[in-house]
Simulated scan of single mutants.
Amino acid sequence: MTTRWPPPGQRFLIDVLLIGLASADVVLNGIDGGYSTRAMTLAIMAVAVLAVRRRFPYLVFAATIPALVVGSAVVAALVALYTVAEQRASRVHIYGCAAVVFVCYTSVWETPYSNASRLLDIVYAILFTGAPLLLGLLMRARAELSAKLVEIDRAHRHEQELIVDKALARERTNLSREMHDVVSHQVSLIAVQAGALQVTAPDEETARTARTIRKLSVQTLDELRDMVGVLRAAGGHPEALDPPPSIDDVDALVANSGVAIDISTDVDPAVTLPAAVQRAIYRVVQEGLTNIAKHAPGAHATLELGVTIQRVQVTLTNNAPNRTPERLPSDRYGLLGLRERADLLGGSLSSGRLADGGYRLSLHIPLAG
């Protein structure tokens, strides 16, 4: 494991500083001691190899030992020992390098002037060897601790995401249960009542209306079942779901709406619409027909659908109602959802009343060609 502390800019400054200190040590010792050419060559080599001390710490350490033996470069060997302790994990190798520095610094093969001088050399060797060794180990421990903290932080964020996902899954389950218990019950009652009315209808028009209501109720139950399946899947892949509505389902949607409507289509057969665009077309027509049935009963409508290689244009227009509409609950979220869907596709949705009391709903989606 190679440490990554400090950052690259600081590492460069530290390298320059350490090489400068080693160079100053060589120059000052050379001035005072008058080293031979061989000793000076070893010292210059020991300083030069410090430039690659992080890539080859053991080789750099070995290259600085000869200069340490002859006493021409001490700082270079200490820097090399610090690098080994910082960059390498093997404690055996680290302590072996420290022992080499200790032995070479004390020059155990030379006869001391006195026992006191030998003891003083040992003390100095312990200090000069222990300082870079402990500093290198400290820097390595700091780098490993920083890496552990980053890993712990990443694991904590992942755990938080799992907690949020679990909470969302629980809310999806609760929501699906409420949808099934409330909406499904009410729509099922509508379907049952419509079926009973279809059987006991006094005339054909009433029976046809009841049949339409029952068919729409059954379709609503199917869509509700798919929605409950998606919610319970909690982000998974629900099984046995009906395919999403497409442009081919618009005719059946219009036929089952109970709205008197004229359809005008101009669709380029060479254009293949994305699934999201087809769903947007279907939902716009569905919402428009629902609003006509709720707010403009008896009105006549016109649906214009145009698809070219450049754009998709859907326009649903109705005239004024011929009877007073019933007051039905409305949350106005239908048009808001359609406008958001159009925005996601890079298009636009416009709606508004006409001068004759009618209403127009229009969807425009540009295509990439």
Rank of each mutant, 00 (worst) to 15 (best):
R118H: 06
T3I: 15
A51R: 05
S217R: 01
P6L: 11
G71L: 06
E287F: 04
E239C: 08
Y105I: 04
D165N: 09
S107F: 08
D331M: 08
A275Y: 00
A355C: 07
D153M: 06
A240D: 07
Y95P: 00
D153F: 04
G136T: 03
A207G: 03
A67R: 00
L135Y: 09
R232Q: 09
V52C: 13
A299G: 00
H93A: 15
G20N: 01
S348E: 05
R214A: 15
Y82Q: 06
G130P: 01
A194F: 08
R211L: 13
R142C: 08
R4E: 04
V218W: 08
L133H: 00
R339K: 15
E223C: 05
V267G: 03
H156I: 02
T106A: 15
E340C: 10
I14Y: 11
R55E: 03
A99D: 02
I152G: 10
K294T: 04
D356S: 11
F128P: 00
A210E: 02
V254G: 12
T317S: 14
F56C: 06
F61C: 06
N318G: 05
A22R: 02
P297Q: 05
G30D: 03
V108F: 15
V74Q: 10
R177M: 08
R140Q: 05
V192Y: 13
P297H: 09
S117V: 07
V250E: 03
A169D: 01
Q313D: 14
T209V: 12
H300F: 12
G229A: 15
V307S: 06
Y124S: 12
A234V: 03
V192H: 12
Y58E: 00
A299S: 02
P57T: 06
D32L: 13
V108S: 12
T129H: 06
A48M: 07
S217G: 11
D343Q: 14
A116M: 07
I190P: 00
V92R: 15
T324Q: 14
R341I: 00
N115L: 14
P8R: 14
E159S: 15
Q219F: 10
S330D: 07
Q193I: 08
R53A: 14
V69G: 10
E304S: 15
L120M: 11
T2M: 14
T129P: 01
R360E: 07
G229S: 13
D251F: 09
A293C: 03
L328G: 08
A63K: 02
G96F: 14
V69T: 07
E159I: 07
G258N: 05
R88W: 04
M40F: 10
D242K: 11
A252Q: 10
D331R: 13
S117R: 08
L175F: 12
S176K: 03
R4F: 10
E239H: 09
T324E: 12
G30K: 06
A196S: 09
V218G: 03
G337F: 11
D343P: 00
E171H: 12
L189E: 07
T106K: 06
V60Q: 04
V228Y: 03
D248A: 15
D266F: 10
A76N: 01
T111W: 09
W5M: 14
V199N: 11
V183G: 04
D165S: 11
L149R: 13
S246M: 09
A43F: 03
I247M: 12
